[in-house]
Design a binder for these strands. Sequence first.
RNA 1: UGACCUAUGGUGUAACUGGCAACACGUCUGAUUUUGGUUCAGAAGAGUUCAGGUUCGACCCCUGAUAGGUCAACCA
Length: 554
Amino acid sequence: MEEIKEEGKSLNFVEEIIDNDLKSGKYTSILTRFPPEPNGYLHMGHASSICLNFGIAQKFGGKTNLRFDDTNPVTEDTEYVESIKEDIKWLGFTWANEFYASDYFDKLYEYAIQLIKQGDAYVDDLSSEEIAAQKGTPTEPGQHSPYRDRSTAENLDLFARMKAGEFNEGQKTLRAKIDMASSNMLLRDPLLYRIKFAHHHRTGDKWCIYPMYDFAHGQSDSIENITHSICTLEFIPHRALYDWCIEKLGIYPSHQYEFARLNVNYTVMSKRKLLQLVNERHVSGWDDPRMPTISGMRRRGYTPSAIREFCDRAGISKREKINDISLLEFCVREELNKISLRRMVVFDPIKVIITNLEEELIHLAIENNPEDEHSGTRQVPFTKEIYIEREDFMEHPPKKFFRLAPGQSVRLKGAFIITCNDIVKDIEGNVIEIHCNYIPESRSGNDTSGLKVQGTLHWVSVPFATPVEIREYERLFKVENPNSEEGDFKEYINPESLHIIPIAYAEPAFKEAKQENHFQFLRKGYFFMDKDSNNEHLVFNRTVSLKDSFTKKA
RNA sequence: UGACCUAUGGUGUAACUGGCAACACGUCUGAUUUUGGUUCAGAAGAGUUCAGGUUCGACCCCUGAUAGGUCAACCA
């Protein structure tokens, strides 16, 4: 059934390329790769790439490798490797092989020697500044380095000595000999190797020369026999160099394809900026629920399938775009509506006294999820004193206020219909108690009262109320695209993105709450238990609010 | 005074490769509802950046503009 639906869908441009390659017989099977640099946490943009690379392999019966692009030892760390693996698994994908670019350092070194022998690479003594100065501009050609025509023997000797650690950082580099007049700046004798006396998270101190991205990525793809190497738009100019290396080396011809990275409005999606938010304490960490990181979204209560669904609906193209966060929220709500347990929690309480209730305690069974008939019910105690939401009562209500007001009736969810017949105020005139009559015949499930009311409220029994902490999140930025605004993006941070309610009143069923449960707090939104919770103190993150067509109008 | 990439409702993605622009989100109605949620029914909203050309016919092909983006890190 799912198959048929998939058949009818049109392919994105990458899928189309692969479909054609398979049909034409260019390949009999495909191999993709997801190549993160282990220098930060994965975010929504990576999720899109993961869904593309792994998804495409699944769709066309191929496989996907996970390869850590760890060619810069100063920024990379094992901590990131572990978090990246955890995030990919959590998203629901399995890699065929776990590789590291650093696995190929020996092979890459041989490749470099091959280029030197072919006269396609040379050791340069120029400093970083001098190279930049000789690079030219997009409209003016660059100048040749005075070291460009060293003999093969000299290059070989120098390169070996670079590897042996005879030179200082920055003193020498290995450069490709291509074309200093190319309109593609990347082809103006790009750096292939640089000296770094840095400890590598995997190879330790074995190496003091490290390959640049352009001398590692294509070769790594080739070594693994990657058929379709899919990356983001900014690598388009690199493709010429990618192909140059493969051609000069005469190795397996992997091909690079580029798609537009995924962006979402009201947030930022670059590692650099996210790192700033963390370092400058605008958020509590990489997994702050406001962060667009996978770990942040997981902590917030987003589900893997909702994220996958979002990536799928957002689509793949070559056009730079910013997706609407509301699509993500739609995907999250759509799933959470089906799976979350309904509970009642009063955030801002006002006391209601059921004046005509004789019994001390009535046990009510209320469904856990009306969308799922197998979800069963829970026991909810009903007592003479209950809390309702302060905003659910108005002494002088406008028309169309379907909630509680003097003389007005409402249903208490899963319980009875009540009518407000009196209010108690303090000296300052604030309402502190609402007195109501309940209709015994209106009990949920066997209502014989014949009464109809417009509103249904959530409520919590006062003596049974359990305090919990609530954390509500708003968008992290005040503007849709912080990147395109004047000045620093941090000036546009929303100062009210986190709203904490230290004490909210929850029904007692939370005693059995499990970390992995998703909840819908009736009329409030979807919530997920935070890792800061312990036995005495439960903390809930608002994953996303419910759609609200009432407060919007007001 | 360069090369390369891109251009379809508010947003994102399509249009079976030339046959009078569809789907989703969002928005707005109405119905249903013991969540102002869900569900259901419906509506508004683009004539495809612009100007030419080819064609019986162009979002699609050609020419030329325009706009936005990318490229001159010993980052990836």
